[in-house]
Simulated assay, not measured.
Amino acid sequence: MDRSEFLYPRGSYRGAVKPENLVFNANLQEFANRVSLISGLQSNGKLTPEESFDQIKSLWKQLKRSKRELGIGQNPFRPTE
Rank of each mutant, 00 (worst) to 15 (best):
E50L: 12
D2S: 15
P49Y: 03
E69V: 10
E20C: 12
E51W: 02
S52H: 00
Q29K: 06
K57E: 14
D2I: 01
K46W: 11
G11P: 02
S39C: 08
E51R: 02
M1E: 13
R3H: 10
A16F: 14
D2K: 12
E5D: 15
F24V: 01
P79A: 09
Q55L: 15
E50H: 06
P79H: 07
N75M: 06
P49N: 08
F31T: 01
R78D: 09
W60D: 15
N33M: 06
K61R: 15
F77E: 06
P19V: 11
Q29H: 03
D54W: 11
A16D: 14
Y8G: 04
Q29C: 01
Q74H: 10
P76H: 00
E30K: 10
S58R: 05
Q62K: 14
S12K: 12
G71K: 10
M1W: 11
S36K: 10
I38G: 00
F6H: 11
N21W: 03
F53E: 13
Q74M: 11
N21T: 11
T80F: 07
D54R: 15
S39R: 11
F31H: 09
G15K: 01
S43H: 08
R68W: 13
V23M: 09
V35K: 02
G11S: 09
K61C: 07
F53D: 08
I56L: 00
N44V: 07
R68M: 09
A16M: 13
Y8H: 15
A16G: 08
E50Q: 14
K67C: 07
L7S: 06
S43V: 03
P9L: 06
N44S: 12
Q29S: 02
E69T: 08
G40E: 10
R34D: 11
L37T: 03
N21Y: 08
G15P: 07
L28G: 03
S12I: 07
R34M: 09
K64A: 13
S4H: 14
W60Q: 15
P76C: 02
L63N: 00
N27T: 08
V23L: 12
N75I: 02
S4W: 13
P19C: 11
Q42S: 07
I38P: 12
A16T: 12
G45C: 03
L7M: 08
F77P: 01
Q29Y: 01
I72Y: 01
E50V: 05
P19H: 04
S39A: 07
G71M: 04
R68S: 11
N75S: 10
S36Y: 13
N75F: 05
N75V: 06
P19K: 07
V35F: 00
G11A: 07
I56M: 04
G15N: 05
E20Y: 04
S58A: 15
V23H: 07
D54C: 02
Q74E: 14
N33Q: 12
M1I: 10
T48L: 02
